[in-house]
């Protein structure tokens, strides 16, 4: 399990290949990459600043990865999240999951993203055509996380 919170950019292809290279028992690799868009909620976006809560950020991502590893038979989990100033087109987040078979890797990757979106202490401030703006949380993100609740 690897958790990285960093200002520097990363190459999603390199990360993906490294995940597979770590173990030949891996039959499935699933990844999600989130990018900065140049348009959001009706405004042009020239860039953004990602604030976080040092300490809690790493802990909460580790907890989410642990929970995924308990729920699905994963071989590896990697989460990378950028912080600081980001330009449109740059990657923000990478989640990679590996397993012997595809379903566990697919489900765990979606679970990690849904939990990360609603539980990890990151906040986006966009630099828009009409000035700076804090991104507001979305109800659809809360609903997405709800579907993983175990009864």
């Amino acid at each position: 399990m690897a958790i990285r919170v960093q200002q520097a950019t990363f190459d999603p292809g390199v990360e993906l290949n490294a995940l597979h290279a770590s173990n030949v028992g891996i039959g499935a690799v699933v990844s999600f990459v989130g990018y900065v868009r140049d348009f959001n909620e009706g405004r042009e976006v020239a860039g953004m600043f990602l604030e976080h809560f040092p300490g809690m950020t790493e802990k909460s991502l580790g907890k989410i990865a642990d929970e995924a590893s308990q729920r699905w038979p994963l071989i590896n989990v990697e989460i990378i999240h950028r912080i600081g100033r980001l330009e449109p087109g740059e990657p923000i987040v990478f989640v990679g999951t590996t397993s012997a078979h595809r379903q566990a890797a697919f489900d765990a990757c979606a679970f990690i993203m849904d939990y990360l979106k609603t539980r990890a202490p990151f906040w986006k401030k966009e630099d828009t055509s009409e000035g700076p703006r804090w991104v507001e949380g979305r109800c659809s993100d809360q609903d997405a996380a709800e579907r993983w609740k175990q009864s």
């Binding site: 809560f53 809690m56 802990k59 909460s60 990890a120 804090w134």
Partner: peptide
């Protein structure tokens, strides 16, 4: 959050705790 773990408002507090307040998170 209490001591760097998300919590609800009825979470009990103890001397020496660290509490954080913030708007809905928007990472990812």
């Amino acid at each position: 959050a209490r001591n760097q773990e998300l919590c609800s408002l009825d979470e009990p507090l103890e001397e020496g705790d660290e509490v954080a307040f913030f708007p809905t998170v928007t990472g990812g």
